[in-house]
């Protein structure tokens, strides 16, 4: 019996496997280059906080925009809670590089800044961080993209670039 055993891979199927692997390698390369050479990155652990005290102690006790280099570099500390972002209006100048630090004091939320690649899960106890540079004037909504209770649908804020 054993001598008759074999995988029987049809030549066409062999080529198909090669093509599939090749395709995945191309995609993986494109993703890796974008991620690690150009900076299209996903969040990575930044800091942990105590959700029970985060609204009263530390940077999220006074959420808002911090100017590091005028006109150039900013930090936005945003507190997510049911069912609003604090603050829910932010204005930055054109050319500003803004780093978002977002956390939640109650349940999970989402933070998606429309028409940018800022898209983060907001998890109580964790700090979500990503950076974006605004090259053109305009208005971007940041919306809550994770179900967070009764009024989840109205939870959003506005970022104005001018």
């Amino acid at each position: 019996m054993t001598d008759k055993q074999s995988m029987h891979i049809d030549p066409y199927e062999k080529n198909w496997i090669r093509l599939s692997i090749g395709l995945l390698v191309v995609f993986a390369t494109a993703v890796t280059v974008a991620g690690f050479a150009f900076g299209f990155q996903v969040p990575t652990p930044e800091d942990r906080v105590d959700p029970r005290t985060v609204a009263t102690e530390g940077p999220w006790a006074d959420p808002g925009l911090r100017e590091l280099v005028p006109g150039k570099k900013y930090e936005a500390y945003i507190l997510a809670q049911t069912w609003a972002f604090l603050p829910n209006e932010i204005t930055v100048p054109v050319g500003a590089e803004v780093t978002f630090y977002v956390t939640s004091k109650d349940v999970q939320h989402g933070f998606k800044l429309q028409d940018t690649n800022i898209n983060m899960q907001i998890v109580p106890g964790q700090v979500s961080k990503l950076t974006v540079t605004f090259d053109e004037p305009g208005v971007h909504n940041f919306i809550c993209t994770e179900y967070c209770g009764a009024a989840h649908a109205i939870m959003f804020g506005t970022l104005t670039v001018e």
Binding site: G39, F40, Q41, D115, T116, N117, L130, V132, T133
Partner: peptide, 8 residues
């Protein structure tokens, strides 16, 4: 993705 800008 590329058109929406980098994130770091």
């Amino acid at each position: 993705l590329l058109s929406r800008g980098v994130t770091v």
